[in-house]
Design a protein around this nucleic acid. Sequence first.
DNA 1: ATAGTAGTTGACTGTTTAGTCTAGTTTTCT
DNA 2: AGAAAACTAGACTAAACAGTCAACTACTAT
Lengths: 204, 204
Amino acid sequence: MGRVSDEKQRLMDAVLDLIWSGSYGSTTIDDICEKAGAKKGSFYYFFDSKAELAAEAVEANWLNHRAEFDGIFSATVPPLERLKQFCDFTYRFQREIKSKYGRVLGCPQASLGSEICTQENVLQKKIQEIMDQKRKYIESTIRDAHAAGVIHAPDPAAKARMIFAYYEGLLTQARIQNDVEALRESASGIFAMLGVKDKKAVAA
Amino acid sequence: MGRVSDEKQRLMDAVLDLIWSGSYGSTTIDDICEKAGAKKGSFYYFFDSKAELAAEAVEANWLNHRAEFDGIFSATVPPLERLKQFCDFTYRFQREIKSKYGRVLGCPQASLGSEICTQENVLQKKIQEIMDQKRKYIESTIRDAHAAGVIHAPDPAAKARMIFAYYEGLLTQARIQNDVEALRESASGIFAMLGVKDKKAVAA
DNA sequence: ATAGTAGTTGACTGTTTAGTCTAGTTTTCT
DNA sequence: AGAAAACTAGACTAAACAGTCAACTACTAT
């Protein structure tokens, strides 16, 4: 009972947008409220602090994106093609962001995580969890590829860490340089790390 | 003429330390002054803003570190061994940082760059310059390795971008997870990207 | 229809912050 | 020694900021 509203959701949308297009530190509670069209009182009705809002927002956002990942990494798709699709998706997504915001914004978890990891413990834990999950998509793909005999990867977890670091590193470079083209090379880099020879076969 | 002091240098040291162990946004001018043992008046005597101080500090710090890089990437060392040494150095360095600060802090340029790139234009330009220079060390090493016939890399610039993204990505992961061990795999990842087979030969 | 619950408002407080300004001090050069 | 340059001190202002509160409004379940 009682009235209902979408103000909580609007606050969560606003904080993500501001952090991603700027930074955590440059985002004030007043900014968030203004962007969400909410008043301070509402903010503190729903959340105790900026960190708590950010943690909830990051979590909710990830749950939304996970559906997309599940599609890309579907077990019905040949493993190496999953990786290719993942790279293509990332490129298209960042391109879209750039045309919308005028900037390449990279990976929200990585920029936020790197910024706050020494200061906001709860938020940092949440981000680490999400990144672990992201990495798992890659890990299971590699395991499948190894099982299918298309690559040699006796330690899928290690290979996944490697590829994930490369993938995130590319996104960070893309953000800093505001250049989406750096992302076009991602698939070929990943395949080089996996020791894939016949790259044309994957694209087909 | 007039008196001399090291307060400018102390301010530059302080700002780097605070940004690296925390973040740009969480570092206030008061914090910087306190850490440097300086007063506000001195700060504004030397610098116009936090961004300007940070830009000068980042630049000066890089000039210091460059000597170390020049040694590691000396043309007298076989190319693949340079890369190995580079990885080893990074691991040792981050280990030392962790024992000093209790945290892995990763790459100062990457975290700062990712945080401020949409907001502080001058600082962002400076960081991009430094990262370009870092990448050049790798690029020329790859060119040498290709010329020596130890790897096949007809496009050294592209390969360098790839390796640099991976290297920076690993450092970011290490910072977020506060885990230096992730960095132990860096050399093997780089060699995988370069298609090096006989990795034992490099280590020797 | 109404009572109770969920959500909203905006003015208010106190603190932190950036940035200024003037009067000082220390050094170097001649 | 004395002038001028280079630097330091710290009190001050104004703005930005986080966080509080009591009164108010809208909804919903019974």
